[in-house]
């Protein structure tokens, strides 16, 4: 038993309901809704509707508390831009709760971070390739920015490895609020070198 959908108006001829094969219908059969002719009907492809949602739920399960905290702090920023102050407060609160649940990872040396950073840097080429092939400009943009920023972080860690924390002697350190670019120095460029936002969006990090 199949279902045939009118390509014009969406009316569904359900063989199970009518107990008559669509093919057996007279040639002059027309859609009872829009009067489209029999040849305007197409066999309905059974899309398993629930699968999509379940798949998405599975993906959500994979979000760790750390990621959920990050997701919520970003959503807070998103609603702030729409002047939804009340929603922003609630997203910030959720973000802090998830951050607390994630907790910190006890680490002895800042250079331990570099191992994860190197793994990230090995991922970008393939990820950008997929984004390009899928025509996903948004994802591609985010990947390009975070790859550049990750390389910046690696270069800062390399400098730190050689010179220790003297790299910050009498020097300010700024983070771009938009892309995460880190600037070490006292003469901020007019725009962020990675995302090109004006420098007032780059925040000085205090001790």
């Amino acid at each position: 038993m199949g279902k045939y959908v009118c390509a014009v108006c969406g009316y569904v001829y359900d063989e199970e309901v009518t107990e008559k094969k669509f093919a057996k219908l007279a040639d002059d059969f027309t859609c009872p809704v829009c009067m489209a002719t029999k040849d305007a009907f197409e066999l309905k492809k059974e899309v398993t509707k629930n699968d999509d949602i379940e798949e998405d739920l599975d993906e959500l399960k994979e979000l760790s508390f750390g990621q959920m905290s990050i997701l919520c702090s970003n959503l807070a920023k998103g609603v702030e831009k729409q002047y939804k102050a009340e929603a922003a407060v609630l997203f910030h609160k959720l973000s802090s709760q998830f951050k607390e649940k994630a907790g910190v990872i006890k680490t002895e040396d800042i250079l331990e971070v570099e191992a994860l950073l190197q793994e990230d840097l090995a991922e970008y080429d393939e990820a950008k390739n997929i984004a390009t092939k899928k025509g996903d400009r948004g994802a591609l943009r985010a990947l390009v920015w975070s790859e550049k920023v990750s390389k910046m972080v690696r270069s800062i860690l390399n400098r730190y490895n050689k010179k220790g924390d003297s790299i910050l002697d009498d020097t300010n350190i700024y983070v771009c609020e938009i892309c995460g670019f880190i600037y070490i120095g006292n003469n901020l460029p007019k725009i962020c070198p990675v995302c090109k936002v004006p420098s007032f969006k780059m925040t000085k990090v205090e001790g």
């Binding site: 970003n74 920023k77 998103g78 983070v175 771009c176």
Partner: peptide, 16 residues
Amino acid sequence: AIAKSNRIMGEDLLRE
């Protein structure tokens, strides 16, 4: 600074 940078990168990635 590097912690903050990581958060912002994460935010921007998840957003997309």
